[in-house]
Simulated scan of single mutants.
Amino acid sequence: MKKILFALALTVCAIATSQAQTKIGHVKSQTLLDTMPSRKAAIKEIKEIEAAGLKELRDMDSAVQVAYKTYLDKRSGYSPTVDQYEQQRIQRMQQALEDRQQQIDQQLQVMTQEMNAVILDRVKKAVNIVATAKKFNYIIDESTTLYSAGGVDVTNEVIVELLKLEAEVKKTR
């Protein structure tokens, strides 16, 4: 019986020791992202491209509307062959507008994904630098944590590393 109690006490001490060695930190990911100049530049660039795409689509839509109005105004004087030709022409214009809208949407999605991948890679690198330097086992994002009763907020330390990484990237360009 004494051996069982001793083994149990030894197990409890081993578990407590192993848990005491686990260091957990946390960051506010939105704060990290908001402080990155490269992310701000990427958002601005995407918005500019999106605005240019919207202008292009509005111009194409205006051309379709003008062609349709012209068609309606002159329709009574068209022969059946010309009427069919004009209808098909307007349908092709409308289809080109829809196709271009899909192309622009796809291009924006690809650009956003590519830019986000670079930004998130930089955030991970900065978190890794801080985790290694401070010997953390885990660093979690506060926004995705359901419950936390501890840990160390390392957001500011990660921001410092992020800004260093951003400066390095800026120098190489």
Rank of each mutant, 00 (worst) to 15 (best):
V12T: 12
K44C: 07
E56K: 01
G53R: 00
T81F: 09
R100A: 05
D121L: 09
A131H: 02
L54R: 07
K170F: 04
V130T: 00
A42V: 10
H26D: 05
T11R: 02
R122D: 11
A7L: 14
R100K: 12
A126R: 07
N156R: 14
A14T: 13
Y78H: 03
A67P: 03
L32R: 09
I119R: 03
L97V: 04
S29M: 15
L97N: 03
L57T: 02
K74P: 01
S148V: 11
L165H: 12
L10F: 15
D105L: 13
H26G: 06
L146V: 14
F6E: 13
S18I: 04
V27P: 09
V169P: 02
V158F: 06
I119E: 09
I43N: 12
D34R: 10
Q30T: 14
E157K: 09
L108M: 12
I90W: 07
Y78S: 02
E98W: 11
L162P: 06
K2F: 04
R92Q: 15
I24R: 00
I159P: 09
A16Q: 04
F136I: 01
D83P: 03
S18F: 06
K55C: 02
K171V: 05
D141L: 05
L54C: 00
A51Y: 02
T144Q: 13
K23L: 01
R100V: 03
R58D: 12
K2Q: 03
Y68F: 13
K124H: 10
D83N: 14
P37S: 05
M60W: 01
T81C: 00
Q113N: 11
E56G: 02
Q91A: 13
T112Y: 09
E157G: 08
A167N: 10
P37D: 06
S148G: 15
L108T: 05
D73I: 15
L146F: 14
V66D: 13
T81W: 00
P80Q: 00
E166M: 04
I4S: 04
L72E: 13
E157R: 06
A126K: 04
N137G: 01
G25Y: 11
K69Q: 15
A117S: 07
Y68W: 08
A63H: 03
G150T: 07
G151P: 11
R100M: 07
Q107D: 15
L10Y: 11
A167F: 08
A7F: 13
L163A: 01
I140M: 13
P37W: 00
S148N: 13
T155S: 14
V154D: 07
Q87T: 14
T22S: 11
A133L: 06
V123F: 10
I119H: 06
M93N: 05
E161Q: 15
L108G: 11
